[in-house]
Design a protein around this nucleic acid. Sequence first.
RNA 1: GUGGCCGUAGUUCAACGGUAGAGCCCCAGAUUGUGAUUCUGGUUGUUGCGGGUUCGAGUCCCGUCGGUCACCCCA
Length: 429
Amino acid sequence: MEPIQTVKGFRDFFPEECAVRNYIFDTWRSVARRYGFMEYEGPVLENTDLFRKKSGDEITSQLFCFTTQGKDDVSLRPEVTPSLARMATARQRDFKKPIKWFQIGSCFRYEAPQAGRTREFVQFNADILGDASPATDAELIAMAIDVMREFGVSSDDFEIRLSNREIWNGFLAQFNITAEHTPTFLQIIDKIERARSEETEKKLNAIGLSLADVRAFMASADESHPAFAALRENLSARGIWQHVRIDATIVRGLAYYTGTVFEVFDRKHGLRAVAGGGRYDKLCSLMSDGKVDMPAAGFAMGDVVLKLLLEKTPGAQMKLTSALLAASSIDAYVVVVDEAQRGHALAAVQALRAAGIRIDYSFGAQKAGKQFQAAEDRKARFAIVFGAEYPEVVIKNLIARSQSSVPAAGLVEEVQRLLAEPAIGPLIA
RNA sequence: GUGGCCGUAGUUCAACGGUAGAGCCCCAGAUUGUGAUUCUGGUUGUUGCGGGUUCGAGUCCCGUCGGUCACCCCA
């Protein structure tokens, strides 16, 4: 019989990987809450029309879509912004503005898996709706920066590449290029650093432009451009403008963005963008058929590229390792040396756990050596030994290799006292 | 969607077209109340799957599935 493998591009999370995933989620969540964002969640499965409405029919080739028994045409979500737009516009009068929401959840895209790209991935989404000011854009960029710093990724390792679609609109107007050419043009700009210049020149000529004009404009679009003035002032006041670099080639594909656009890039490893986002003032109107016209901006960060970056960045690697150890270790392992004391040991296990102490022990009779080895394997800080001397109980510090003895009646208090002391030894978080 | 490379024990990898192996891991013992080291023994494979060539295929060929990388795309 053929073994059943995971579906192409989907992942198992064994405890080791699951701990990494939890660490990433916890970090995202803690920064978002620090910024005063509220967590929400939408359905993983949506009517396919929701995504067609935003992006057009051709996008369905990269959707996980199928027809249900009830003949509904549905898709696993490739992103959460359409769901967010529906939710926010449906009840927008119930929420004071600005609406600051974040979300963490799986998304799905039917694409060829490769480095930094799977078919199932988790995105962190942060959005601010109902406020069109540059202060909103600044808040989102600041949060993106703080998320990276919270992971231990420094300015040596990442940067924010910032642009604004308005500056290209101004450029196109200056050369009297009609709006119908805008998508084509932005696609050319998106690829300008990767494509050969003859190709780019040819494509630009086709819509009445020249590469020299575009290059000249890009060189002029530095941080002194008026489109960046308010953002620059805001982020400078926070002391984080140095993370930002103006890069006019950032246009974010063909999406719904209308103003500020930015991406988070690693600076050393040539990875895909870690995060991307920007202002999308027309999307709510589009998704609500014009009923709700609400400005919005947001960004999304995926877990796959982020994890690659964390593993390649020494400072982030250290934080990750210590978080993993803290998550996987236990406080104490109860060693039953004299099986006659198992009842007393179980009572102590219950009492210690009730006090919030992380305890493990062996289910059956085991030689003492095995039990101490198990305590070591579980990265326990203490071993609590139940032997013939009961009601005296031995508490052994597995790091310092010292031991003491307490009456069973005072065990919980004594263990709490010992745990409150700073651990002596390496790598205890 | 296109192309390159890869697929052998739980894992990391060997094996000229000629009997499928090793390290690690795991389990047990040496060791009757203390973690290391060491030693001993043990479990595990239709060589991803399906065809073909051959006296004989893990090895060569075709297909397929999966992994990986690049291109396309990247909401």
